[in-house]
Amino acid sequence: MADEDWLLPSPAWTGIMVAITALYLGLFALAAKTWREKTGVALRLDVLPKRATVPLAVGLPSILVGSAFVFRFTGSPVWLFAASLIGAAASVGFHLAFVRLHRAAA
């Protein structure tokens, strides 16, 4: 799967990454708006503990981008699957932590 003939050219990957990032930011903005309308409270990540948010903000992009480089060099897709699972677990964990903090404040 990491063969040069199989992989997309760099401009195609760049376009895909820009589109995915724009989609992610759009969905985040929609989620923030919906949350604010539903609860009357702004969706703010700064209420979460910095000891969790700072390492995750630095580490998660490193894991996701690093897995793509490791995949490129090894050809093993297991790195991509592992990074996706870590990203999904982190997303669910942050959601649950935010909901718990919101309930405690209410």
Rank of each mutant, 00 (worst) to 15 (best):
A22R: 08
G40C: 03
D46Y: 10
A19M: 08
S67Q: 11
L45T: 04
V99Y: 01
F73S: 15
A97H: 11
L101G: 15
R72S: 15
T21K: 05
V47A: 07
M1S: 15
L101N: 12
S67V: 00
D3V: 11
T34P: 00
L80S: 14
R72Q: 12
L7T: 02
L30G: 00
L48R: 11
W79G: 15
L7R: 13
A42F: 03
L56D: 00
L25H: 07
T14Q: 14
A89K: 01
W6M: 06
D5T: 12
A83L: 03
A97I: 12
A52M: 09
P61S: 04
D5Q: 14
A19D: 07
V92A: 12
A82F: 09
L56V: 14
T14H: 01
P11H: 03
A19S: 06
M17I: 00
F71V: 00
P49N: 11
P61Q: 11
D3I: 07
T14E: 03
G87M: 03
A29P: 06
V47E: 12
V54T: 14
R103S: 04
E37Y: 08
W79M: 07
F81S: 06
G26P: 10
A105E: 05
A89P: 07
T74W: 00
V18T: 10
P9G: 03
K38R: 15
L60I: 09
W35H: 15
G40F: 00
L23Q: 04
A83P: 11
R100H: 13
V99H: 04
P9K: 02
P9M: 05
A82Q: 10
L85W: 02
V47Q: 11
F73E: 15
P55I: 06
S91F: 14
A31P: 11
W35N: 04
A19Y: 11
K33C: 03
V78P: 08
V70K: 05
K38T: 12
G15I: 03
S91E: 02
L85P: 14
L27S: 01
S67R: 07
R51L: 02
I63K: 03
L7W: 09
H95T: 05
V92S: 08
G75L: 08
D5R: 14
E4Y: 10
P49V: 05
D5V: 04
G93D: 06
P49S: 02
F69G: 06
L27H: 05
A89R: 07
L27Q: 13
A29N: 02
A12E: 13
I86E: 06
A83I: 06
R100D: 11
V54N: 01
G40Q: 05
F28W: 12
G40W: 00
A82R: 05
T74D: 10
P61Y: 08
M17A: 14
A29V: 01
S10D: 08
V54R: 11
V41F: 07
L8D: 05
D3S: 15
I86P: 12
V58D: 02
F69K: 09
W79D: 14
I20G: 01
R100F: 07
I20P: 02
H95A: 14
P61R: 05
A97Q: 11
A105W: 07
F98L: 07
I63S: 03
A104I: 00
P49Q: 10
H102R: 13
L60A: 07
A89H: 09
G75H: 10
L8S: 09
V99A: 09
R103Q: 09
I16L: 15
G93T: 15
L101R: 11
A68V: 15
A42N: 04
